[in-house]
Amino acid sequence: MKTELISTVFLSEKRKNTLIMLLNGPATIDEIKQSINGTTSAIMAQVKILIEQGLIEQKDDEYRLTHIGQIILKKIKPLIEALNVVEGNKEFWDSRDLSAVPDDLLDRIGDLGDVTIHEPDLNHLFEPPKELLVSLKSSANVCTFYSYFCPTCPCNYSELAKNEVNYNLILTKPVYERLRDEYTDQYNAIMQSQNSHLFVCHEQIITPGAISVTDDLMLLSFFNKKGFFDHKKVISFEENARQWGHEFFLHYKENAEQIK
């Protein structure tokens, strides 16, 4: 039975997606069909299997998870979401050093949802992705962490400060010192802003490359397993991803000292 249930869930995308959909509540065949893009006959064949395995049941014209189905799906859903994130960009995740991510967030990496991997060309290596720049212009709340120096970022930092965006910026000590010593005008704009808060991360803590969370976007970058930064970045626009990124940012804020 254990093998049968695992096979029932994982060996058919239609079955798996139907079960995940029904976690949100009962649905008719037409609603299931619209959600998972299949023909009525194809979906009915998979629904029949799910009923036979005791994972769903029919009441009137609607299908819903059984109690057993709810128990199993609540446990399996995080695994499915994690697999979707990793398998979609397996080569990228295989090459990342994820030691900076707290265990509880690694367990929830499926929260990143539908991600894209941004890999700039040689002419834009040291520029933030356009998606981030667009988002910064319209966001009222921004959290940013950097452990490497991006030459275009001081202007972006100061622009947020001048616009009195609710802005929290965490830098490693070397990055902070370069900002302070070489970009005086931008540094002063940040320090003079009532809504900008600058922090320096403790030197002993393991850090990723960058974290940015805006009102509608989350961006992450990690060093590769050889310790190099290759400019590849993870971008997601999903709400759960932004919450995940915000918690990741707070992990570093708790291990940082505010500059006043």
Rank of each mutant, 00 (worst) to 15 (best):
P26Q: 10
P26Y: 13
A27D: 04
A27H: 05
A27R: 09
T28I: 07
T28K: 11
T28C: 06
I29F: 14
I29K: 15
D30F: 07
D30A: 08
E31M: 06
K33D: 04
K33H: 03
K33N: 06
K33P: 02
K33E: 09
Q34W: 02
S35P: 00
S35Y: 03
I36P: 01
N37M: 06
N37P: 04
N37H: 09
N37W: 04
T39A: 05
T39I: 00
T40S: 10
S41D: 04
S41R: 07
S41V: 01
S41F: 04
I43H: 02
A45K: 15
A45Q: 14
Q46I: 03
V47Y: 12
V47A: 08
V47D: 10
K48I: 13
K48H: 15
K48C: 12
K48G: 11
I49R: 12
I49F: 14
L50V: 12
L50F: 14
L50H: 09
L50R: 07
I51R: 13
I51N: 07
E52C: 01
E52I: 09
E52T: 09
Q53C: 13
G54T: 05
G54M: 06
I56G: 03
E57P: 04
Q58I: 00
K59R: 15
D60T: 10
D60C: 06
D61S: 09
E62Q: 13
E62M: 13
Y63G: 01
R64Q: 12
L65S: 05
T66M: 08
T66K: 13
I68F: 12
I68C: 00
